[in-house]
């Protein structure tokens, strides 16, 4: 069932934002939920988390970084073209009610997911601080949009200091914990970042939720590709998550499982790049 791309926006060299017409899905999305999509008939099913949606206008939006063939092909879809499939909303929504003083950490494209979460937490009456992180200023995602949210503070950190503070997101997170002003933390980004955020808050006993991004196939509980160890128990990222207690997640296992198809991904992407360069010649 094809879905029309309404808008594509390039946010940095390898990061894109895409808006797709999907009225039935848009009517249902809540913060923290994800979709599965397939670009074309030969495509892989990949999970992407919603960055925004509009129930009235019937669209959903997501942000992705080009990391392999599927995201590469997706980045070549223009407004007016279609993608083969989009299904959702999947997974449990993020808890946003009655949390008190919240810190939401968004790293890299994880900021796209942090955006609706922070917005919903603020709308639910929590006091929200957002920490945005990226390697460099160019890779910061949605910083302008965060500025407009009714949040108490936006802290930006880049590895190279090209914008905001120089350093990792864990530093301001630790300072806030030290100041004793955090009741609840949420970290969304690369697994390694979420691991260190959870390690940062652990000594303070601050409940810390992480939004995991394991490999999935169907996204509805059928295959178990997305299984993660949480507190020694096997959970399915798609139906039990994607949010889990960051202090209980086995991040080493998650990172290892994310790399299962690294060789095949390289092979497929190289072939795709070759094909693209042939076509343009």
């Amino acid at each position: 069932m094809p879905f029309e791309v309404l808008q594509k926006r390039q946010l940095s060299e390898a990061v894109f934002e895409m808006t797709v017409a999907a009225p039935a899905v848009a009517a249902k999305v809540r913060p923290g939920q994800f979709l599965m999509l397939r670009v074309d008939e030969h495509g892989e099913r990949i999970p992407l988390t919603f960055s925004d949606w509009d129930a009235e206008q019937g669209w959903v939006r997501f942000i992705f970084m080009v990391v392999g063939k599927t995201t590469h092909a997706l980045s070549h879809r223009e407004a007016g073209e279609t993608i083969a499939d989009l299904v959702g909303p999947l997974g449990k929504p993020t808890r946003v009610e009655g949390l008190g003083r919240c810190v939401v950490v968004g790293g890299g494209v994880g900021a796209a997911v942090a955006y609706p979460v922070a917005r919903a937490m603020a709308e639910a009456g929590n006091e929200v601080t957002v920490i945005l992180g990226a390697r460099t200023a160019d890779l910061l995602v949605l910083a302008d949009e965060f500025e407009k949210l009714p949040i108490s503070e936006l802290i930006v950190a880049t590895d190279d200091g090209s914008e905001g503070r120089k350093g990792l997101v864990t530093e301001p997170l630790k300072e806030l914990c030290d100041a004793g002003v955090v009741d609840h933390a949420m970290a969304i980004g690369p697994a390694i970042m979420m691991k260190f955020c959870a390690a940062t808050t652990r000594p303070y006993g601050v409940p810390t939720v992480v939004s995991l991004n394991p490999i999935m196939v169907d996204g509805t509980g059928m295959c178990g590709a997305c299984r993660v160890s949480v507190g020694g128990e096997t959970k399915f990222g798609c139906v039990d998550g994607p949010d889990f207690d960051g202090h209980l997640v086995d991040f080493e296992e998650l990172m290892s499982r994310q790399r299962i198809y690294a060789d095949e991904e390289r092979e497929a992407d190289a072939a795709y790049r070759q094909e693209c360069s042939c076509r343009t010649k």
């Binding site: 069932m1 039935a24 899905v25 249902k28 499939d85 989009l86 299904v87 959702g88 909303p89 509805t220």
Partner: peptide
């Protein structure tokens, strides 16, 4: 037949 639709999620 309507594909890409999860009852319990989409409707």
């Amino acid at each position: 037949v309507v594909t890409d639709t999860v009852i319990g999620a989409t409707y």
